[in-house]
């Protein structure tokens, strides 16, 4: 009975789904955005260590500071990094006094002695404030676009660090034939929908002045800010990898000892012939 019932149910599903497979269907319209879309360029990052494997490797502190400078002078006009606190900048190698000075450049909401809303200078304990009070304010100021918070950007996109670098260096005036681009948008094949509302933020070499002698090029700016945003998304990256190397070394020794005792325990069963 069970087998007959199973046979009937089986035939029902099989015929149904095979009918679906042979039923004629219209070819999907070719999606031009998909054809134009490019995967991120491949870059070797110091925080990925030898071979870009992601096992060893630490952030380059100088690069993080340059990336922060690019963020502060360029990106922060529209994009917040609201999940990062000023105190976290100590990870970049800034001193306590420097962090206090950076925080003091920002204003955050507060309540005054009379209970009225006011603002005060930020302290190291505060987070980087939002650029716009809310989404509506952002869209009103940005031609209808809403610049996303960048704190988690490199984790919120596939191959995030390479993606940020590729996007920033991927603008092109060469709009392919047949592709429609509204005048308020820019052509960037690394963006998922190709047309991006953000104007090319890094437009010319020398736009940001580096004090450490690093070449002030658009390519370098893009790399530096991509690394900085990797840190904002994963501030515990170095800690994580150090812990991982120690944990795995421990486990290899433990498993090796376990294997030796396994051999000893089983010796009388698995005697060689």
């Amino acid at each position: 009975m069970i087998r007959l019932g199973a046979l009937a149910v089986g035939l029902l599903f099989v015929i149904n789904v095979l009918w679906g497979a042979i039923a004629p269907r219209e070819d999907a319209a070719p999606d031009m955005a998909k054809q134009l879309h490019k995967h991120p360029k491949h870059v070797e990052w110091t925080h990925n260590g030898p071979g870009n494997l992601g096992i060893f490797g630490t952030f380059d502190r100088g690069q993080l500071q340059r990336g922060f400078q690019v963020y502060k002078e360029v990106c922060s006009a529209c994009h917040s990094i609201n999940r990062v606190a000023f105190r976290n900048l100590a990870d970049l190698g800034f001193s306590e006094a420097q962090i206090k000075a950076i925080a003091a450049e920002y204003e955050v909401a507060a309540i005054d002695a009379n209970g009225e809303p006011t603002t005060r200078k930020a302290t190291p304990a505060d987070k980087f404030p939002l650029v716009y009070a809310n989404e509506a304010a952002a869209r009103a100021a940005q031609n209808g676009a809403n610049p996303p918070d960048l704190s988690l950007m490199t984790k919120a996109r596939p191959d995030g660090t390479n993606y940020v670098y590729s996007l920033l260096t991927g603008y092109s005036d060469d709009v392919p034939k047949g592709w429609t681009k509204p005048d308020t948008s820019y052509y960037n094949p690394y963006f998922h929908s190709i047309n991006i509302a953000m104007p090319p933020p890094l437009s010319a070499d020398g736009q940001v002045t580096y004090s450490d002698g690093t070449p002030a090029t658009v390519d370098q700016y893009a790399k530096d800010v991509a690394v900085f945003l990797t840190w904002t998304a994963e501030p515990k990256l170095e800690n994580r990898k150090e812990t991982g190397v120690a944990a795995i070394l421990f486990l290899i020794i433990m498993t090796g000892l376990g294997y030796l005792s396994y051999r000893k325990v089983w010796a009388d069963i698995k005697k060689p012939a």
Binding site: L53, G54, I55, R240, K241, T243, G244, V245, A247, I248, L251, I252, M254, T255, G258, Y259, S261, Y262
Partner: peptide, 17 residues
């Protein structure tokens, strides 16, 4: 125990790297 050790090594590789 040996199986567990190997499992934890692979698990750690994913968790940490």
């Amino acid at each position: 125990f040996v199986g567990l050790g190997i499992y934890l090594i692979v698990f750690s590789a994913f968790v940490f790297f």
